[in-house]
Computed example of a mutant assay.
Amino acid sequence: MTDRQPDILCIGSVLWDVIGRTASHMRVGSDVPGRIHRLPGGVAMNIAMTLVRFGLRPALLSAVGRDAEGEELAAEAAKMGMETAHLYRSDDLPTDIYMAIEGANGLIAAIADAHSLEQAGAKILRALEDGRLGTPDSPWSGLVALDGNLTTDLLTEIARSPLFARADLRVAPASPGKAERLLALMGHPTATLYVNLEEAGLLCHQPFDSSETAARALVARGAHRALVTDGGRAAALATAQDCITRTPPEVLVTRVTGAGDTFMAAHIASEAEGMAPDAALERALHAAATYVSGDTPL
């Protein structure tokens, strides 16, 4: 493994996704034919996989067990081009797992078992303080993709920590059910929030009818930057100075799990290349549309 520093740190869930997909519409109690896939997943992993496709070298900071599932997962990540040396490998905690069912009418149900990540807590950040990736006096000053599978306590600690004082934070909730954890990062001077319309409403405690309204409200509430998506409708990127919107291309949706992570990673990579805000937003929307259409390899 090369000694050069990674291009970005991906902090959060690294686990196995077990996804069942069917072309049928589903409701509670449906029993239909389909396909079941097991593949590397988790928000941090999904973001890292897309970053690799854009030519960046991400490092994973997460908790992965020393069980057979963890050994296989770490090997898969390394084979894909990710830095895995900074993973917290636990002898006692099993590798986390996510399970979802997707039908022709979208995501039917999902369960995220990220208990090992939550129990590991700040142990996953050791490389940021022991000199491998930084120290409190000389903290990491590059890009960080952070996901809301971390506990509220740890996100609050990150928001106040000198270890992240110079980082360019890019933050996403793991799901609408965990969106309010991101309130801990409101007011952080570099944090960009990547949320969908429902998650924006949960953070602001009010519903929104457009991404632009939601993005502006998040900035008014204290977000440094806010990027709000709304499925096939226009997405918006707001700062205190401006708000831009772009509409994604129309595609046939064949999968949804991981689409938001793909969008976020494509936007980060585009900005890392120096693209203008409107061009970066448009490229990210095209990447996400390509992903949900099934044209991006699993």
Rank of each mutant, 00 (worst) to 15 (best):
V28K: 11
I124V: 14
T2M: 09
I244Y: 03
A122Y: 00
A266D: 03
A220F: 05
L117E: 04
S90C: 08
R35A: 14
G231V: 08
A236R: 04
R255D: 13
S270P: 05
R126V: 09
T247Q: 12
H86G: 01
A289Q: 03
H37A: 15
R57S: 13
L117D: 09
I268R: 06
A200N: 12
P6I: 15
M99P: 00
H267R: 11
A259L: 05
H224V: 07
E71M: 01
D7K: 07
E271C: 07
R255G: 12
P139A: 06
P136M: 14
L146K: 01
P58M: 13
G121L: 08
T229C: 01
G42R: 11
P58H: 05
A236Q: 07
A284M: 10
L117I: 03
M80Y: 11
G177P: 05
E273W: 07
A23F: 06
R170C: 13
G201F: 06
G70S: 03
G231E: 04
L117F: 02
Q5V: 01
A289Y: 05
R221C: 10
A184S: 12
R66K: 11
D67T: 03
A48E: 11
L143S: 15
L183Y: 05
M45P: 01
L61E: 12
A100I: 11
E118Q: 15
R21W: 14
K79L: 14
T213A: 14
T245K: 01
L197N: 02
H286P: 04
I268Q: 07
I47V: 15
L117A: 02
R53M: 12
A114K: 02
E76R: 13
L203T: 08
V292W: 01
S62T: 11
G260M: 10
S211E: 03
P189H: 00
G65T: 06
L128K: 09
Q119C: 08
L93Y: 00
L203Q: 13
A288Q: 09
H37C: 10
A122M: 09
A114M: 13
T262N: 15
L163D: 14
E273K: 09
E76V: 10
T290E: 15
N149M: 07
L133R: 10
E250P: 07
